[in-house]
Design a protein around this nucleic acid. Structure first.
Lengths: 260, 260
DNA sequence: CGTCGCCTTGAATCATGTCAACTACAGTGG
DNA sequence: CCACTGTAGTTGACATGATTCAAGGCGACG
């Protein structure tokens, strides 16, 4: 409530604002602050490294458009995709305190993004405690995703892993792209999915076909339609795991409202 | 350099200070601040929940003595240990912005710990930007561990997983208990290890015996001795993965030194 | 019309899981 | 002192989910 914010336009940088506004009323000043995180606006082609594993990375990355992955590889070719980075993701602020990146951040489609330096981050936080808390909250969400992912890979079988990954992405995308209904484009090949789920390409293929055969999802190229959301969530154990629950506590939201 | 801090006594609360002092020169004031995080001092028996999955948890937990695990379970009994919590671990500050815990924090030995509220945390940060950065750094380390763990479970075989877990714990313990040489007590049964590595108890047993048979480790009860550190690190791919690299960047340390 | 990337499928193989039994040891109560 | 119990570690035999290898299909592209 309070003073309601102006409608968000479709320019680059709106993804983070779109995402936050679903949970918090942002003031115009706050929106302006956040929009400052669109400068400088960088464009990247697919398969560009925005952060490289083992290299110094002095800035965090705010993604506005496109898809990217965070991943780490061994010399022998084995690779693990740690998570998928979609518009509105802030990846990863803590780079400020770590001298060397522990992973690579690589685009998989054309992207627009903004590098955010540690000092810019500190200024932003100093300027508004609420924004500081929001950033903190974003990072907590990211960590929560990482834990979900760890559980899935450690203790779930192929079907459950795929189901929970699809569930997760679907939900996250709905937070930043409001027009998403029952389907979304997942612009990655099955090798990437394999590396994300800790499975082999062949088995990912089989399992996707199984999900399709069961009428749980439909696929057209790389567009995934969730045909039976209930069953998908059931298989994914999403009631418990639930990224869907990642909302901001009303009480905390209220606290954010008080502190200026 | 500067004004050197007084020797740390062996009272509860020193674990965090010990850990930080290996990377940063702490002023007496800072040590005092950090020591304030020992009140109230709580004691817990083994198998007590300090945080319960799905419940509200309004405070973070700073562990002084003992071992704990963060874990999450499914109704059907499957469980994943997300990480091991040892003295000096701050677990987990972001609880302040999340209404419901996404995991349980359970002691496995007798512990001493301190609950830290969000406001206490904010006061601490407000009091000293350097301490704020240190806390941030601690959280970054924790996230880094989570990523290592994810890689291990997703892409490594049983031997590599066990090796990297042992490597990790050994290194972390050395940061808080300076008298550790080539061995440490790991006070968990093999079921916990199985849940941490995503393996079955039986296979954990076989793999531990294999590590022992190869002369890489020795075990006496739950005391683990690293007999061939080089080979252990080689198997764990620890050169790349390396928690060992988790040092504070000199440049960043310097920056911390400037900001008061 | 050949090549390339990706998806798909079958068959063989392997790492790991499951089931079940046995050992060792500590505690407890008679 | 013994019998009983429970927890944890250990081991073998077998089952199976997932990997690997290998081949074919299919569309995009030059």
């Amino acid at each position: 409530m309070a003073r309601s914010a102006p409608p968000v336009d479709a320019t680059a940088g709106s993804a983070l604002v779109t995402r936050l506004r679903q949970f918090i009323d942002l003031t115009t000043a706050e929106i302006a602050s956040l929009q400052s995180l669109t400068r400088p606006l960088r464009k990247a082609q697919p398969h560009e490294d925005l952060i490289t594993h083992g290299h110094a990375s002095s800035t965090a990355v705010l993604l506005h458009q496109g898809w990217a992955i965070r991943h780490r590889a061994l010399e022998d070719g084995r690779r693990q995709v740690l998570d998928f980075v979609i518009p509105g993701d802030f990846c990863d602020p803590s780079v400020f305190v770590t001298p060397v990146a522990g992973f690579s951040l690589t685009t998989i489609t054309c992207c627009t993004w903004t590098p955010v330096s540690g000092s810019a981050l500190l200024d932003l936080i100093a300027g508004s405690r609420r924004i500081g808390a929001m950033l903190w909250w974003l990072e907590a969400q990211e960590e929560s995703l990482l834990r979900d992912h760890l559980f899935a890979i450690g203790r779930m079988n192929a079907q459950e892993r795929l189901a929970s990954l699809i569930c997760e992405l679907w939900t996250r995308l709905k937070n930043v792209e409001l027009d998403i209904a029952d389907g979304f484009e997942w612009p990655v090949n099955q090798e990437v999915i394999a590396d994300a789920t800790g499975l082999s390409v062949v088995h990912v293929n089989r399992t996707l076909r199984w999900l399709e055969h069961e009428g749980i999802i439909r696929r057209t190229g790389r567009v995934y339609h969730v045909h039976n959301p209930e069953r998908l969530r059931y298989i994914a154990h999403a009631a418990k795991a639930g990224i869907g629950q990642t909302h901001l506590d009303p009480e905390i939201a209220a606290r954010l409202r008080c502190s200026h």
